[in-house]
Design a binder for these strands. Structure first.
Lengths: 167, 167
DNA sequence: TTCCGCGTTCAGTCTTGATTGAACGCTCCA
DNA sequence: TGGAGCGTTCAATCAAGACTGAACGCGGAA
């Protein structure tokens, strides 16, 4: 969205064309989802090269500032999509893809939905019995069912070893 | 997000407190989802008062300009969340809640995901067999499974008459 | 102790997009 | 035919927040 550095950026260590496209697509997608575009590109890069990749190499291959890597790597880390790891004899931080990034992603989504549900409870259960209450209850029930559904999907993915990406 | 007119706005025809809170919460939620805040508040209003409500009454009750109602009502209409209806002897447009707004909402979500999947196919199936391909395939498969899951949920909701909100 | 490499933070810049209000065109009624 | 009511559109305004680059603080090495 904001300040796209270049329509398509080619990293210093060239990637197969398909990989480069994939990375940009993940940037597009994450941006649509309300996250910084760089976070999406970073996640995309780690999906094609599961690392470990050093902090400064990330900045080079994505053509972004170190500040952006710092911010966005922390973001992905906090969501359980990537891991910060030590590499023997190296002072730099290294990152690799988390073990089940998509399972963790689903948990992040349902976590947010649960938070919204908590704020909705204030309206749902205020004691009064007005006409409009049925729509509010229906909304709450919809959230509840969606959360159940997504968590069931997460559970299924987690139990399947095919759900494991990365090492 | 942008330019919130007031922390909490109370419509000209006062609503029960819980309804007013609910409307703002839906504004918050839709905003988080990347939609205009007014669209969320409008959807929230129609969930508690399923109408038909006239165009100008919507503007009054939400304390926003007619231009905003025009834009956002069209948006919700395009997503199948509300319906524009005729009211006998009235020149104004009226709106009511769609019959299964949440089912339609799910279809909108899966529609977007399918579009993303199409763009991913370009990278997935380019013939080459590089190492990073497994991550790309895993991403694609995750999307496919999530779409199946959400569409199954939509189908279940649609088949249940409890899924019907509005008249 | 000094220097250098490294990650974080923050002020500054810039883009996006939400919202408004006015102008417009349409339709219906007098 | 004129005017009023109605919905849409568009330029202008404004806030949010993405990204950068520089400054900073913290080690470890010389």
């Amino acid at each position: 969205m904001n300040q796209a550095p270049a329509p398509t950026s080619f990293p210093s260590r060239p990637l197969p064309e398909a990989h480069a496209i994939f990375i940009e697509r993940m940037g597009d997608h994450m941006e649509m989802e309300g996250m910084p575009r760089i976070a999406g590109r970073l996640f995309g890069l780690m999906l094609v090269d599961q690392g470990p990749i050093s902090f400064s190499e990330l900045a080079e291959r994505l053509n972004v500032s170190r500040g952006s890597i710092s911010t966005n790597a922390r973001l992905l880390e906090s969501q359980g999509l990537i891991l910060r790891v030590d590499v023997a004899g190296e002072r730099q931080d290294f990152f690799r893809l988390a073990d089940r990034p998509f399972v963790n992603m689903l948990h992040g989504i349902t976590g947010h939905m649960r938070e919204t549900m908590v704020t909705l409870e204030e309206c749902c259960f205020d004691g009064t019995q007005s006409q409009g209450m049925t729509g509010i209850r229906a909304t709450y029930d919809f959230f509840a069912e969606a959360v159940d559904n997504l968590e069931a999907l997460a559970k299924r993915l987690a139990e399947r070893n095919g759900g494991e990406i990365g090492r």
